[in-house]
Write a protein that binds this DNA or RNA. Structure first.
Length: 514
DNA sequence: TCTGTCACGTC
DNA sequence: AGACGTGACAG
């Protein structure tokens, strides 16, 4: 079983075009052994295989250093995250969801046509989840066609009320796909629910508010149908560039070439793509030579080198079975001078601000925080959920062994809420309830007693209906009259406070205890 | 560095 | 037809 598990993981690795991290198999083996001896009877046969759609396109972006624009109102990713899935139990129900986690601890800047580290990362933002709109659905459904997460939106608005995934600009991120096995009847109320996580390292990106690398801009324009308006004319030699209603003179390819050659130093700043909208043929030969985003030295793997100090795993595939998950969240929102604190019991909103170690750290370096740095609130939120077994989280010598990488089977253990594996942290999932559990004053601030069945299960917008946003606008809000512009900086404290208070009021369970 | 607005495009 | 997704730009 262990053998086949690792083999399976390796196969997936090959499918996804990523080599297995050397440390992975060790952890996998250790974990699998431990898991099997613990709860062998809970292993199940389904063995989801996930392949990334448009991997070639992702690779093209990844080579250049993918950038994703984030806006206040939310921006889709391009390329869209789509996967093909095989190996699910046709009849079982699954929930598919994504999250996007910090890939490292750095803030970046684009300097001299290169991404460079520019300091320490901002505190991690709330880890929101995007639940696929078809969820929950049968394995047969998920395997029938491409599974698209293209409606997922990214925002830099820390107060975002729409349920978009909140990111910090100029930081590096790694999207992750989670497949959660659910009961027939109860999306998030399943017993013995398992999930597995897939990471495609070629989908990592740096978030920006405007593109930094014009090669990325061009690649987006060339490939994103919505950006067709910025493409050159069909005629490869002549083009018209339209900027704000004005038509600029037709410019021949030769002119472009000469202009570019004669003014290379100014190209990046002044020949913005819109002025001389680059036809691929032109750009590939001329425009591209000014922007070398990353050092090309050394690496034999063109993919391994795109971001400095990347801690990306090559591929991760790990499964868990977890016993229970609490959820609730608080969001501060500010609209038109009205300051409110929104509380969305819909998405996870774990305040990472107070973690003593960044979430991306590998278990080998972050072991201490796994056990020691859990805040009391976190202990409250997760305490009592996994009272059973969590062997493997901390070894006798204090080092963590990874329960997160189980390879080929659904895991039989709950992941530690903040567990990180090969550079990517584990974060708990969050259920999203259409009807939040009513506020009940006087409930003591004690976690174990709070674990109960959700009154309603996951809200997901219907398959064809579009949308798919997790949030149904049913916020509770409290006035916050003395918010100032510093709201973002104080948000952490506010949230921490309200979490403490509200945990006592919301009794929500992601997956109930068995 | 970020935001709102725009023209132009898709869906 | 109209809502929505784009990058460019100005500020």
């Amino acid at each position: 079983s262990v053998k086949s598990a690792i083999k399976g993981a390796c196969n997936r690795s090959a499918v996804n075009g990523a080599g297995l991290h050397p440390a992975l198999s060790h952890h996998q083996a250790a974990h699998l052994r431990g898991m099997k001896s613990l709860e062998p009877e809970e292993e199940v046969d389904d063995d989801p295989k996930v392949t990334l759609e448009a991997k070639d396109l992702w690779d093209q972006f990844h080579k250049l250093g993918t950038e994703m624009v984030i806006t206040k109102s939310g921006r889709r990713m391009f390329p869209p995250f789509k996967v093909r899935i095989n190996g699910l139990d046709k009849k079982a129900k699954y929930i598919l969801l994504m999250d996007i986690v910090a890939a490292d601890d750095c803030r970046y800047k684009f300097h001299n046509s290169r991404w460079m580290v520019a300091g320490k990362a901002e505190p991690a933002m709330p880890g929101r989840l995007y639940v696929h709109p078809d969820s929950p659905a049968t394995g047969a459904h998920w395997m029938r066609q491409l599974v698209s997460f293209q409606k997922l939106k990214l925002t830099n608005n820390h107060l975002d009320p729409f349920g978009h995934i909140i990111l910090n600009s100029m930081h590096k991120y790694q999207p992750r796909l989670h497949i959660v096995k659910a009961d027939e009847n109860n999306a998030f109320g399943s017993k013995n629910t398992a999930y597995c996580t897939h990471v495609f390292h070629e989908t990592s990106f740096i978030s920006v508010t405007s593109y930094q690398n014009h090669k990325i801009t061009q690649l987006k324009i060339e490939n994103n149908p919505f950006a067709k308006g910025f493409r050159g004319s069909e005629d490869g030699d002549l083009r018209v560039s339209r900027i704000q209603g004005k038509e600029y003179p037709i410019i021949s390819k030769n002119m472009v070439r000469q202009k570019i050659i004669s003014s290379q130093n100014h190209l990046t700043g002044k020949f913005r793509a819109g002025v001389l909208t680059g036809h691929p043929q032109v750009l590939s030969s001329y425009q591209y030579d000014t922007g070398t985003p990353f050092s090309k030295s050394g690496s034999q793997d063109p993919m391994s080198n795109n971001f400095p100090q990347s801690r990306d795993p090559s591929l991760m595939y790990h499964c868990f079975k977890h016993r229970g998950m609490l959820l609730l969240s608080a969001h501060a929102c500010s609209h038109n001078h009205v300051k409110k604190l929104y509380i969305h019991p819909f998405y996870e909103d774990t305040p990472h601000y107070f973690r003593s170690a960044p979430s991306y750290e590998s278990p080998l370096v972050s072991h201490s925080y796994c056990t020691e740095a859990m805040s009391s609130r976190e202990a409250c939120m997760y305490g009592g959920i996994d009272t059973e077994s969590r062997p493997g989280v901390v070894d006798a010598d204090g080092l963590t062994s990874s329960p997160s990488v189980s390879g080929n089977m659904w895991a039989a253990r709950q992941p530690y809420p903040h567990y990180s594996v090969e550079g990517i942290s584990y974060q708990p999932f969050t259920a999203h309830f259409t009807n939040p559990t009513p506020i009940t004053p006087g409930v003591p601030h004690q976690a174990p007693s709070m674990v109960s069945r959700p009154q309603k299960t996951l809200h997901v917008q219907g398959g064809g209906g579009g949308g798919g946003v997790i949030l149904q606008s049913q916020e509770y809000f409290l006035d916050f009259t003395h918010y100032s512009k510093r709201v973002l900086k104080t948000l952490a404290f506010i949230k921490q406070y309200f979490f403490s208070v509200l945990t006592a009021y919301f009794k929500c369970v992601f997956i109930t205890l068995t």
